[in-house]
Every structure is written in structure tokens, then in C-alpha cells.
Amino acid sequence: MPRYLLSRLGSLVLSLVVASVVIFVVVQVIPGDPATFMMGLNATPDTVEALRHSLGLTGPLPLRYLHWVGGMLTGDLGTSYTYRVPVAGLVLQRLQVSLPLTVYAMALSSLLAFPAGMLAAARRGRGADLAVMGATQLGIAVPNFWFAMLLVIVFALRLHWLPAGGFPGWGGGLWPGLRGLTLPAVALALPQAAILTRVMRSALIETLSQDFIRTARAKGLSQGQAVRRHGLRNALIPVLTILGLQFSFLLAGAIIIENVFYLPGLGRLIFQGITQRDLIVVQSVVMLLVAAVIVVNFAVELAYVLVDPRLRR
């Protein structure tokens, strides 16, 4: 395995460990006694003690940490205090909404951004470029939840094309599910597409100023051929980086959008966890989100190796 990958793998593991310690400290150490925190001030010592036991919050901190991490590694995320069910089951159920939503939004955003970015780079400084850049300037400035509300007002309340909220589940087939996720996905995708378009454009323009594009032109390639054969792949690295960041941003950014559309995803789960002071749920779901971000970034670094031969050693 190339040394580059080994070192990335090492930092992946280290990041996961440090992240889990940080989360554990913030959730279980800083508030003092989590059980008291969860029960509120009016709880009797006995009930707090009982909760502490049932949640496994007894014993010295290092042991509790190891217990939590060990459980996570074997798929045991603890038991929700409010729902009285294993957190792992809750998460799996909610992922069926959050994951498709994220992927849907990323697909939309990429489909929009790649051609727009290429067009803008090719027509740099001309009308099409100005139009695209103006649109992205606006897209970056629009908060996605507000955009979501506008979509609801227009497409659900006025035109009645799509549902205003809620999620029918995947039981009724693919189409009803997709219908329910369409407005949220569009709301998530457009601001992301604006960012991605700008990155795509500047990465391409940067690549086009490189010496090897001039070499390609000297061989007889037209400007378009030079871009397609030599520019795209070189521009891919920054684009991949942003795609990785966007995946994690969408997973987390969906938290707000899920609230606009009343979607039963991970975001709603975290929120309910916070309002009901269900620390076990918060701790585990936050750790999962962070782990997802770290792993996706690692996957992006793996993809660099596929794209760039200089990293293959």
C-alpha cells in the first residue's frame, strides 16, 4: 500500500479516537452528572440513581468511555431514555430518510454544477460566464431553509404539485418516497450547487493556465480538446475535496431542512434528543455524524490516489 494511504489511514483512526473523546467529555463530563441533567432538578435521588444504573452511567469515567466505544464498535449505541428502545434501531430507521435525501441532493447539485462550471470556465469573461457567476452569487447567499419555505409556498401551497412536508416511507414504492424528498433535496442542492459550480469553474480556469495545456495546444489540440483531455482530470482534485465536504455538510445541513419539511430523519432525532435531554441519543448520533464525515473525507483521499498517479507510491 502506498505510504500516502498508510499515513491517511493512521490519521483516520486517530481522528475517530480524538473525536469520540471530545464528544464523551462534552456530553458526560462537562455537565457533571448526566443522569441528574437528564432528569432535571426535581428528580429524587432514587430515580436519578435508577436511571444512572439503567443507562450504564456508573463506574469510573475511563471505563464508561471504553464501554461506550466498545458498544459502538459492536453496533450497540445504548438505549434511548425517552423511547426506551436501542438507539441503533432508531438510527437505522432514520437513516432511511437522511441518507437518500443526502444522496438525492448531491446528485442534483452535481448534475447542475458540473455543466454550469464547465460552461462558465469555457466562456470565461463572456455573457454565459457572467450569468452563471451571478446566479451562483445569489445561490450562495440564500439560506437553504428559507429557500425551502419559498419552495413550499410556491410548489406545495399554490401549485399543489408536491407535498409540503412529511414522509410517506418507502413502503409505498420508490415514487411516493422520492416525491416526498424532492422539495427538501432541491432546497439542499441549489445552494450547494452554487458553491460547487464556482469551485469547478476556478479549478478549470486554474488548470487551463498550466503549461501542459499550452503543450497540448502546441500538439494541435483545439481549446475544447485540451480542456476535455487534459484539463478535467486535473481539475478533479479540488472538486472531489468539495464534494466530500458537501456530503458531510448535507448530512448535517439536512438537520434544519428536515425541520422545515417534518421529515423523520437523523436531524429530527437529534433535535428530539436535545429537547428531551436524551444525552445517550445525542452522544451516539453526533458521534455517527462525525464518523461519517471523517470516513467520507478518507474516501475522498482514496479517490485522489485513483486520479493522481503522483500519490501512488
Binding site: 503549461d211 501542459f212 500538439k219 498517479p309
Partner: peptide, 28 residues
């Protein structure tokens, strides 16, 4: 015209630049 010029570059006229470190595409 650019299209005819593309036909000449590389076929009738070859060009070598100063900086060999950056003149080649690192990905190919």
C-alpha cells in the same frame, strides 16, 4: 482559421517550451 491552425500545430510545426517540469500533464 483556428481549425486549420490546429491541423498545422504538431503536424507541420513542433514547439518545445522552457520549463520541462510543468510542460507535461502529470496525470498521463
Amino acid at each position: 482559421p483556428e481549425r486549420r491552425m490546429c491541423g498545422l500545430r504538431g503536424r507541420e510545426i513542433g514547439l518545445i517550451f522552457q520549463e520541462p517540469m510543468t510542460a507535461l500533464n502529470p496525470m498521463k
